[in-house]
Structure formats: structure tokens, C-alpha cells
Design a protein around this nucleic acid. Structure first.
Lengths: 210, 210, 210, 210
DNA sequence: GATGAATGAGAATTCATTCAT
DNA sequence: CATGAATGAATTCTCATTCAT
């Protein structure tokens, strides 16, 4: 009865488990240093099973990264929610968004994704395209949309929303990357808060109404 | 006497040649995919010679990266020169600096250095420290120094120069990385110019005097 | 009743299909390079079905070869028909037989069978026995029988018919193999005809009456 | 002093040893079943050394076969020597040659070479070309040359020496292959002698002077 | 000090074969 | 009986590293 369902789910589950394990191992070791054997063990599957589901080490890597990229993108875009209905005080909405975005960016998954993507720029350039378009670009565009509405409603100075979005994100991620030394140093919550506040302040001074 | 000198210089030259070749090959292939044989060939030396000069593949990598980091850092810090004596129009000085910095960041060496550093975050975390402290940190601090002087001399609003420096750099590198898709897409000179101008404009609107 | 019959026939058909597919794939790839998956696909069956019908890859190979050997042997022996009632002109009968035999030997199935048998001489020596006894030996003996009758009836010189049969076959297959470079080079019909004629001529000069 | 010589010879020796071991192992196991590890062990070398000298398993196979082919060819051509100066009794010279040729063909190396070549017809067709041209073709042509001279000197009937050569060889190898069941059955010296005598007898009856 | 040759360890990938359905 | 999924065992090949010259 449920047997087919179980079987199908079992297969899907196994695939998911493999991709998850793969992302973890890749994140820990890097693409080349990670070996399929270790991934298989982490996913509690036999090595050939990995090859049955994902033909290549390369495919495995790509799929794992794309999956992570989608998840990160979803989180990041969700972080823009406060800007939907900013109420009277846009500053609070921006600050809220900033905090949420920084939380997403400092989370393990996003950090690992950044590393892995960067690391393979030379080897799989098209993968970088895929990942960045699913994360950075999508996020930047969503943000640009919000900023455009805010400009229309008089909450922001009228300028190119694309550039404004780029700047908002840059003012958050730039200092964060700098302080965390590309994610190798722990950043205290206080520091994160400072980055958020400083970023929002500068952004609003440059782009705020009037 | 001269012979020893010549020999010593020859030895040093060979070492430099190896490190240079190593950086090129690592940049092209990535750490793990690069093989010592290829590096030796690129440096026109026999493989054991590489091992004579640099004990390990790891050592080779570290030294090559540190060497490149020093070069990039020197270029970047030099790009701050216009801010030394900004004259009457700080905007022009900032713009000049911005253009120079972007030129440095888009150059091959800096891009490769970024990739390689990011790529090995998981494997050699301390290397990231070394490289970032020699490049980003040093650059940020030099810039902060300049900004402090400019604030004192009334050319800038008085705020934390460290944060201001972070923001200035972020406003340039963030959009650049975004548009170049981490360096995989070519960025036109016009776009670079646009990034410089937009960044400087926002920076000055937020940090400019008055 | 009918259902059982149908089922049984279906089963047998499937078995035949598998063996046929197996022979094709083995012929194309060789024993070791051929993989069961490919055979299963060629037979339009699932892999485990192959194992249900034929326990082993080895069994599969043996059966496929034996089946092909029987077919080739039947063709070859049939090619001797003209020698049954040679009429007044034995030369014509020999020539006819020679042409038919050469046609059988150059056909794909016989060629593949030869290859595969030879190929596994070291691995399955007894298989060679089985196959050669079903093909070469059987053919040589049938031919010897015919030659004996022809000798009795005065159409041939009286000699050991076994040796004569060997020689007749050798005079055809030897040059054929030589000219086709073991079957890798295409042999034109004209060349085949030349081989047949030269072989028969020499055979009759040596073994013909008087 | 002799050091360089020793080193160079050492390298050459090692290469020869590898090729020899390879041929043995291939002959015993067949191409696909033979594993490089075993070859390396047989040659008393580390596995990578094999790869240093011969890039591929395929290259290894080809070189080993070509080497063996040259050796076999040399032996076979040498077996034709008696035909050079046949004296008054060509029959004796042919018989001598026949015996020698059969000795070459029944020797292990030639048998293995035949197997291996045949076995890979489907996989490396060009290798078959190479090997057969170095052995069969070369032998057939040398023999044809001798036969032409013998025809000119009146010892043989005048016919196409190429065909005659093919027939001579076929009359020897055909029965031999048949009786040895492609080399899997032992053939007694008496049988070999019988094959030689019968072959020569038939050949001379067909091609002898008058 | 520089080099050609050799090696030990390890990794991706493939495949015959077996479960569970 | 037929099949999709899973696995254990092997095998080819690569590479950092070390000798011997």
C-alpha cells in the first residue's frame, strides 16, 4: 500500500542524503580534497550508490552546490520581507532586513557556499554563473524591486534602484567579510550589529528621502 | 667572489621563477589540481629542484601566495596616493583612487589571489589570515589613516575612519564582484567607471563634509 | 493450458533474445569489455532477468557462443551439399562448395565466433573444445565423408580423406584469413572468387583423379 | 665510469623486462583480464614505473605485441632459409622449411601472439593490421620471393608465387590449427611431421615442376 | 645543486551480482 | 517472474615525494 510510496521516498531521501552529505564534506575539505568514499560514508551509503544517483564527482558537486544555493537564496530573499511594508519608519525596516541578511550570510551554509563557489571559479566557471545568478543576482534584483517601490512611495531618494541595491548589499557584506577574514575569524554578535547599523546609516544618509 | 654572488643570485632567481610559475599554475588549476610536475615545467626546472627550494607542495603554495599578496598589497596601497594631498576637490581625489583600486582588483593577479585564498579557506585557514592581513587589512588601515587626516582637515564628516574605510572599499569591490560574477564575466571599462563614480558619490554623500 | 504454453514460449523467446543480444554485444566488445547491463539493454530486459535465465556472465557467454557455433556449423555443413551428387564435373561441385564455404566464413556471425573463441582460449580453454568440435571438426568430418565417397567413385585420387579435407579447407580459409587480415580488411567478391578458384585448382591438381 | 652505461642499460633493461612480463601476463590472462598490477609484479617493478615507461595499458599491450611480432617474424623468415639454395632435391628443402615453420608456429610465443591478436580484433583493429603485416604478410612475401626464384630456376611450375606462397602456408597452418584445436590440444611430434609431409606432398603435386 | 628514474599511497570509476518489491 | 536499487570488489591511473647519479 504505502510500499511504493516508501520506496519512492526512500530513493528520494537517499538522493537528498547524498547531496547533503556531499555539501558538508565538500565544505569541510574542498572539491579536490574531498573523496567520494568519504561522502558515501557520511551519507551512509555505498560508494557505487553515489555514482548511481549522480554520475560524476563533478555532477555531485554541481548538484550539491545548486541545492545549497537555492536554500541560501530562499533565506536571503525572505530576509527582505521587512521592506515590504516598511510602515512609517523605513530605518527600522532596513535595520531589520540588514540584521536578517547578515544572519543568513554568517550562517555556515552560506559561508561554505561562498567558499566552494569561489574556489572553483577557475575550474567550473559556468558553475559560478549558476550559483551567483541563483543567489546574488536574485537577491539583488528582489532588493532593487523593493527599493523602487520605496522610492515611489517617497521613502527613498529617487535613484537607480539596481545600484542602490548593490550598494546596500555591499555595505553589509563588505565589512562582514573583512571582519571575519573571509569567514575564518568568529564575529561577535555585537560586531554584526555594528556592521548592520553602520551600513544602514550610511545607506540612508546617501539614499534616504531628502 | 663574483662567482658566488652570481651563483647566489642565480639561485634566488630560480627560486623566484619557481614561485612565479607556481602562482600561475595554481591560479589556472587550483591547489589540488595543480601538479608539481607542471609547475616544474613552467619554471623550466626539474621536479626535484622544486623540492630543493621549497620543501612541500604546501610550502610552495604558501610562499607563492604570500609573494603575490605582497605585490597586490603594494599596488593597492599605492592606489591611495591621490588621497595624500587631495587639494581643493576631494571628490576628484576619491574618484582617482577609486579608479586605481578597481584597476588593481580587476587585474589578474589580484583576482587569482582572491580565488586561491578563498579556495583554501577550509584547508589552510591560517593562510587566509596571512594573506588578508597583508592585503585587505593593510589596505583598509592605510585608507583609514588617510580618511582620518581628511576628517581632521575638514574635508570629511567626522566619523569612525575604520568603518568609513570599510565602507569605501565595500562600495567599490561589492558591485565589482557582483557585476563580474566573481570574476568570471568580463566587465567593460564603462561599467568599471560607473562603479567608481557611483561608489564615490554615495560615499561622499554619506561621509562628505557638512 | 494455452496460457502456460504461451508463457513457456514467451520465456523461451526471452531466453533466445538474451542469447542473441549477448552474442552481438560480445562480438562488438569482447568478453571482458562487454557488460551485462549493455546486454540486458540490447535484449530489452532488466539486468536481473538476465541473471534469472543464465546464472553467470560466463554461462551467458558459453551459451551464446554454443548457440552461434551450432548455427555456423549448420551453414557450413549445408555448404557441402554440392558434393553430394557431383555429377560429371567434380570441379564445378568443388567450386560451388568452395564459394558457399567462403560465404559462410566471411559472414559476420562466423567471423565474430572465431574472434570470440580465439580470444578466450586462455580463459575458457574447454569452450574452445566445444566450439571447435561443433564447427571445424564437424565440418572437416562431413567433408572427409564426401571426399571418401568421391574417391570411391573414382572422382578423386585415393588418399586419406581426413587429410584431404583438412587441405581443402585450409586452401580456402588460409588465403581468406590472410587477405582479410583476420577479418579486419574488407575482401572484394572478386578476391573471394579468386581464392575459391585457386584453392579448388590446387586441390584438384593434388587430389584429382589420375 | 661504467656508471652511465649501467644506468642507461638499466633503463632499457627495465623497459624490456616490463614488455616481456606484459606479454607473458597478457598471454596467460588476455587483455582485459590482465591487470597492470600483476604485470608490474612479474617485471619486479612498481606499478607507476610501468606507467612511466608505457603510458597506458593499451600502449603497453600494443608495444608488447609488436615486440613479440617482430621476434616471431624473424623466426619465421629464418625458417625459409633452406629454400635459398635448395640443391638438387627441392622436396627436401621444402620439407625442412615446413618442419621449421611448424616449429615456430607451435612455439608458445607465436601461439600466444595469435591468440592475443585475434582476441582484440574488435577492440584494436589497427593493431591487427600492424601485427599481421609484420608477421604473416612479411612471411608470405619472403616465401613468394623464394618461390619465384625456384620457378625461374625450373624447380617449380610457373604460377603466381603469391598464391603459391599462401597455399604453402595454408597447407601447414590450417591442419595444424585444426589438430591442435586452436592451440589448446597438444600435438605430437609425429602429428606435426605428418602435417609437414602431407602439406609438402600436396604442394609439390600442385606446384612441382612438370 | 640539479636531474632522470622509481615508488607508495590513494582516488575515481566500473561491474558482476544480489536484495526487496 | 521481472525489476529498480544497492553493494563489495577490483582496476586503472595520478601524484607527491625520494633515490642514485
Amino acid at each position: 500500500m504505502t510500499s511504493t510510496t516508501t520506496a519512492a521516498r526512500g530513493r528520494i531521501d537517499k538522493r537528498q542524503a547524498i547531496l547533503e552529505a556531499a555539501f558538508d564534506v565538500f565544505a569541510r575539505r574542498g572539491y579536490a580534497q574531498a573523496c567520494v568514499k568519504e561522502i558515501a560514508e557520511a551519507a551512509k551509503v555505498a560508494k557505487p550508490t553515489v555514482y548511481n544517483h549522480l554520475n560524476d564527482k563533478e555532477t555531485l558537486f554541481r548538484q550539491a552546490l545548486e541545492r545549497a544555493a537555492d536554500a541560501v537564496a530562499a533565506d536571503a530573499v525572505a530576509a527582505l520581507d521587512p521592506l515590504r511594508a516598511p510602515g512609517d519608519d523605513p530605518r527600522a525596516a532596513f535595520l531589520d532586513t540588514a540584521r536578517r541578511l547578515l544572519a543568513v550570510f554568517t550562517a555556515d551554509r552560506a559561508r561554505s557556499l561562498r567558499w566552494l563557489t569561489y574556489a572553483q571559479v577557475g575550474v567550473f566557471p559556468d558553475l559560478v554563473e549558476t550559483v551567483t545568478s541563483r543567489t546574488q543576482t536574485r537577491l539583488a534584483e528582489s532588493l532593487a524591486d523593493r527599493l523602487a517601490r520605496l522610492a515611489l512611495s517617497g521613502h527613498l531618494h529617487r535613484t537607480d534602484p539596481t545600484t542602490a541595491a548593490e550598494h546596500f548589499l555591499a555595505l553589509l557584506t563588505g565589512p562582514l567579510e573583512h571582519r571575519s577574514a573571509l569567514g575564518t575569524r568568529e564575529v561577535t554578535p555585537a560586531e554584526v550589529e555594528a556592521v548592520a547599523e553602520a551600513g544602514v546609516k550610511v545607506f540612508l544618509r546617501a539614499y534616504g528621502a531628502r
